[in-house]
Design a protein around this nucleic acid. Structure first.
Length: 280
DNA sequence: CCCCGAACCTGACAGC
DNA sequence: TGCTGTCAGGTTCGGG
């Protein structure tokens, strides 16, 4: 469930359920999922000597808030620590008891009221970070502006793009430029903007950048209303699915709404879908 | 310094 | 049926 609208949906739904609960412990079922050592927080593979017990950091912590920054979920507590979750490709937070349908539980929150929060993640890319308050910036420091903030504007993009030599697709996927976009929404945004994915950023006009900013906000707004996009659903019983996949115009499609053939190329290691008639 | 491909993993699916 | 190859919503690392 990985791009901004999906993360936003998780945050909204989870907030109602877990705020006020007190953590008894967080169990790690797959080594490296729960990170609390600052020196190895972001390492792809946690080294044996970096492993640190987090038991004392979370025991008795009361959850007082849950918010989002980019694709990161930030759970605040009444202790000196915050819990930050990144779902990566296949991570899911599920507010239910462990059961046989959840075959890839990588971490498990035990609450004092005998309920659970399950972190299920087949591909094991997802991570849970336990970080002292105030050091949260370590995780999030490099993120660009939120798409809905004033800071994300045509003017901003124009300034940043002037020094960059990459494509608009790669730039929008870069979380340091703007936080929260992923492959699906970038494809949709560029189609809606009428801009070809491989255009060089420094060659884009202010009018085109304005269109990108507008399309980004419109598409994300609609997707959030739909509770996000659900693709290739190997989902479990009680995690709800989004419906924005019904409104996708190019991602995973054969033809665009104008009836033109959709093309697909590998770019930056992943598929880019586009219409060469609608996008220039 | 910037950029891209590989790496980190498991599962689904198409084709033979 | 069972094998092989490809693909998947993300980020980090290392080589060019």
């Amino acid at each position: 469930m990985p791009e901004l609208p999906e993360v936003e949906t998780v945050v909204r739904e989870l907030g109602e359920k877990i705020i006020g609960k007190v953590i008894d412990k967080i169990e790690e079922n797959y080594r490296g999922t729960v990170r609390c050592n600052e020196s190895s927080l972001f390492c792809l593979k946690e080294k044996e000597e970096d492993y640190l017990s987090h038991d004392s950091m979370v025991k008795g912590a009361k959850i007082i808030g849950i918010t989002r920054r980019g694709k990161y979920i930030i759970i605040t507590t009444d202790t000196d620590y915050e819990i930050i979750v990144h779902l990566r490709m296949t991570g899911k937070l599920i507010n239910s008891s462990p059961n046989d349908s959840l075959k890839h539980i990588r971490a498990l929150f035990y609450f004092t009221d005998s309920t659970y929060l399950i972190f299920n993640d087949p591909r094991t890319f997802g991570k849970i970070y336990i970080i002292p308050k105030g050091k949260t910036d370590m995780v999030i420091r490099s993120l660009g502006p939120e798409p809905f903030s004033q800071d994300f504007s045509a003017e901003y993009l124009f300034n940043r793009f002037s020094k960059m030599k990459t494509t608009i697709r790669n730039a929008l996927l870069n979380q340091e430029i703007v936080a929260g976009l992923g492959n699906i929404y970038v494809c949709e945004i560029l189609y809606d903007s009428g801009i070809m994915f491989d255009r060089s950023v420094s060659a884009l006009s202010k009018a085109e950048l304005k269109k990108i900013v507008k399309s980004t906000r419109e598409i994300l707004t609609e997707a959030i209303k739909c509770n996000g996009t659900t693709i290739s659903d190997f989902r479990s019983v009680d995690d709800k699915t989004g419906t924005f996949q019904n409104f996708l115009k190019v991602y995973g499609k054969k033809t665009c709404p104008q009836g033109h053939q959709i093309s697909r190329v590998k770019a930056g290691g992943r598929s880019s879908y586009f219409c060469d008639k609608c996008q220039k």
